[in-house]
C-alpha cells in the first residue's frame, strides 16, 4: 500500500507540474508580454520594473521558466494588477469560501444522490423510480447557473425564504464573529450549496441506481437472503457495500464539477470565492489571478482523484490486498 501510495502521489505531483508548465507556456504564447497587457497602463513604471525583475522578464526563456517554477513552489503566483496585492493572498482569502461551498454541495450531492439512487434501484420500474428518474435526468441536464437563477428567483425573490446573495448580511454581520452570524452564514450558504448539490445529486443518483441494480442481481445477494437476513440488511449492507465501489470513482469526478460549477454559481450568488475572483479577474485582464486560480483548481482536481483512488483501495479488498502484496 505504501509504495502504491508513493507512486500515485508522484504521478499527481507530475501532473500538477505539467499543468504549471503548460500554464507558463500559454502565458508566453499569448500576444504581448505576460505581465504587460495593453490595458494595464494604470501600473506605475516602478511596479512594472519590480515585476520585471521578480519574474525575470529580462532573461532568457529557460531561465524565466525556472524562475517561474521557483516562484510557484514558493507560493508566489505574482502580483494582481487590479487588486494591487499578491495573487496568493487574494486566493487565500477566497479559497475558504469556495471550499465551504464545495463541501456543503458535496454533502448534499452524496447524501441526496445515494439515498435517491438506492430508492430508485429498490423500486426499479415502478412509478416512484420512473418519476424520480426522469426528474433526476432533467436536473442533471440543467445548466447549473441557470438552476441557481431559478432557485434565486423563486426562493429569494418570490417567496423570500433565502437571501439573494453574498456571504452574510453586510449590515448585521460584516464579520462572522458570533453564533448568530454563523447561522446567517449558513443561511446564505443554503441556496448556492443547494444549486450545486442538486445537480450533483442528480448525477450521483443515476450512477448509484445503475450500480445497485447491477449488484442486486448478483449471486451473493441471493446468498445473503438465503441466510435469513432482513431485506434491509441484504440491500443496505451486502448490496450497498459493493454498489458504493463505482460511486467512489464518482467522488473523484465530483471535484472538477464542483470547482467548475463554483465559478458560475459564485457569480450568480455573489459568493466571494475563487470562481468569482477568477471571473472578475478576466474582465480586468488580470491574468496572474486567472492562472493562479487555474493552477490551484487543477491541484484540487488531482487531489480529488487521489483521494478517490485511496478510498477505492480501502473499500475494495481485492485492490487493497493486491497493493499490499505488491
Amino acid at each position: 500500500m505504501a509504495t502504491w501510495l508513493v507512486r500515485r502521489l508522484a504521478a499527481s505531483i507530475a501532473i500538477v507540474f505539467a499543468v504549471v508548465t503548460i500554464t507558463f507556456f500559454v502565458i508566453h504564447a499569448a500576444p504581448g508580454s505576460p505581465f504587460l497587457p495593453a490595458e494595464s497602463q494604470h501600473l506605475t513604471p516602478e511596479t512594472l520594473r519590480r515585476l520585471s525583475t521578480e519574474f525575470g522578464l529580462d532573461r532568457s526563456l529557460p531561465e524565466q521558466y525556472l524562475l517561474f517554477l521557483r516562484n510557484v513552489v514558493r507560493g508566489n503566483l505574482g502580483q494582481s494588477f487590479a487588486l494591487r496585492r499578491p495573487v496568493a493572498d487574494a486566493l487565500a482569502d477566497a479559497i475558504p469560501n469556495t471550499f465551504t461551498l464545495a463541501l456543503a454541495a458535496l454533502i448534499i450531492d452524496f447524501a441526496l444522490g445515494l439515498a435517491l439512487g438506492i430508492y430508485q434501484a429498490v423500486r426499479a420500474g415502478r412509478v416512484g423510480d420512473v418519476v424520480s428518474g426522469n426528474g433526476a435526468l432533467l436536473v442533471n441536464s440543467m445548466p447549473v447557473f441557470w438552476l441557481g437563477l431559478v432557485l434565486l428567483l423563486v426562493f429569494g425573490q418570490w417567496l423570500r425564504w433565502a437571501p439573494v446573495g453574498g456571504l452574510s448580511n453586510p449590515v448585521l454581520c460584516p464579520r462572522l464573529d458570533s453564533p448568530a452570524c454563523g447561522l446567517d452564514f449558513l443561511w446564505h450558504l443554503t441556496l448556492p450549496a443547494l444549486t450545486l448539490g442538486l445537480v450533483g445529486a442528480a448525477s450521483t443518483a443515476r450512477y448509484q441506481r445503475a450500480a445497485m441494480l447491477e449488484v442486486i442481481r448478483q449471486d451473493f445477494v441471493r446468498t445473503a437472503r438465503a441466510k435469513g437476513l432482513r431485506e434491509r440488511r441484504v440491500l443496505l449492507v451486502h448490496a450497498l457495500r459493493n454498489a458504493l465501489l463505482p460511486v467512489i470513482t464518482l467522488f473523484g469526478l465530483a471535484f472538477p464539477f464542483l470547482f467548475t460549477g463554483a465559478v458560475l454559481v459564485e457569480t450568480v450568488f455573489a459568493w466571494p470565492g475563487m470562481g468569482r475572483l477568477a471571473v472578475n479577474a478576466i474582465f480586468q485582464r488580470d491574468y496572474p489571478v486567472v492562472t493562479g486560480a487555474a493552477l490551484l483548481t487543477s491541484a484540487m482536481v488531482v487531489l480529488g482523484n487521489l483521494i478517490a483512488d485511496v478510498l477505492y483501495a480501502v473499500a475494495d479488498p481485492r485492490i487493497r490486498v493486491r497493493s499490499e502484496t505488491a
Binding site: 451473493f220 438465503a226 441466510k227 457495500r241 465501489l245 479488498p317
Partner: peptide
C-alpha cells in the same frame, strides 16, 4: 417474512452452484 427469515439459514440452509460469485467479495 419474519417467520420465514427465522427458517432461512437457520433450519434450512442452502449452497449454490457458483462458489466464485456466491460469496460477497467485500467481506
Amino acid at each position: 417474512p419474519r417467520e420465514l427469515r427465522a427458517i432461512r439459514g437457520n433450519r434450512i440452509a442452502m449452497i449454490f452452484q457458483e462458489p466464485m460469485t456466491s460469496l460477497n467479495p467485500v467481506f
